[in-house]
């Protein structure tokens, strides 16, 4: 397999890259959709890094670039402010993969993204939406009630400053720390093993998200005595979301095109809900 030389960034280029992580994390929700959520936003965020690696215009680099773009179409969802950290880590991994395509499994990039996005959304949302927002607007409302313009201004400033710091320095930290660890792993020759272990973390986090982020239930019941959902819950809770995910997975394994699966998803919603089977 062809290896690529990825020159390290000089100081000016680094700063430019961190700003790009910053802005592109902020814009990550521009095309939020139910299927991939912020996936196109993540692709948009990491695109400059990919373009720089595979920029020489040869047919080989074009194919590698297509693969890299496709890779980042995978499901992604994370608080914008903490997304820049994930962008940073993923960028360092893309560069490492380009340098060592034989010893590096590119699927581990999405495994790492999945491992990071769940916990970082949890922390990010409770910090920014829970703590900072309540603080900022609790204060702002008090000023505004008296008709003071300081209310909204203060509220936005208090919201902005921590968000700015976390987003900018998060991207920087993700990229530099990612680079450091990956170099270490390569030197020690344990990349394969690390990739495998990272995939395990990724899969466990995805499993947890299936149990907590889908929430399909069934309203089927007979009188007050029997509710199918309750019966299912006694066997194991969140059975229906798991079943739906594996049906989708099975369809993918059967090589059903994603466009058709998308249609199936929407049509089954439109049919199964009025029939009273799922809600």
């Amino acid at each position: 397999m062809q290896t690529w030389t990825v020159p390290t960034l000089n100081k000016r280029q680094s700063r430019k890259r961190y700003w790009s992580f910053f802005w592109r994390s902020y814009a990550i929700q521009a095309s939020w959709n139910y299927e991939g959520q912020m996936n196109l936003g993540f692709l948009y965020g990491i695109a400059p890094v990919i373009d720089r690696i595979y920029g020489d215009g040869t047919p080989a680099s074009l194919e590698a670039k297509k693969d890299a773009y496709r890779r980042h179409l995978a499901f992604y969802n994370c608080t914008p402010q903490t997304s820049s950290f994930v962008l940073g880590v993923a960028s360092s991994m893309e560069e490492e993969y380009a340098r060592n395509p034989t010893s590096f499994d590119p699927n581990s990039i999405n495994a790492v993204k999945s491992s990071l996005m769940g916990p970082l959304s949890g922390v990010g949302d409770s910090f920014f939406q829970g703590t900072i927002k309540v603080l900022a607007f609790g204060l702002g409302v008090n000023f505004a009630r008296k008709g003071s313009i300081l209310g909204p201004i203060l509220a936005v400033l208090i919201s902005f400053v921590p968000a700015f710091l976390v987003t900018y320095y998060g991207g920087k930290l993700g990229y530099t720390a990612g680079n450091k660890f990956l170099t270490k792993l390569t030197k020690a020759g344990i990349m394969d093993r690390a990739m495998y272990l990272v995939t395990i973390v990724g899969l466990m986090v995805i499993g947890s998200m299936i149990a907590s982020m889908i929430g399909i239930t069934t309203p089927i019941h007979m009188g007050k005595a029997f509710s199918l959902q309750k019966t299912l819950d006694t066997i194991f809770p969140q059975m229906i979301p798991l079943a739906f995910t594996f049906v989708m997975y099975w369809l993918l394994q059967k090589k059903v095109t994603t466009g058709w699966i998308l249609v199936i998803c929407i049509v089954s919603g439109l049919v199964l809900s009025p029939l009273g089977i799922f809600k």
């Binding site: 959709n33 139910y34 299927e35 991939g36 959520q37 996936n39 890779r71 995978a74 499901f75 699927n107 999405n110 495994a111 999945s114 995939t199 990724g202 899969l203 995805i206 998200m209 299936i210 982020m213 889908i214 929430g215 399909i216 979301p241 739906f244 995910t245 594996f246 049906v247 989708m248 997975y249 369809l251 993918l252 394994q253 994603t258 699966i261 998308l262 998803c265 929407i266 089954s268 919603g269 439109l270 049919v271 199964l272 809900s273 009025p274 799922f278 809600k279």
Partner: peptide, 25 residues
Amino acid sequence: WLTNALTLASKILPAFGFALLMQTM
């Protein structure tokens, strides 16, 4: 019924997203 149906469809789509993600791993 239409509102409910759309809500259900919007819950099924993430299951598809997760399946796509699992596919590579």
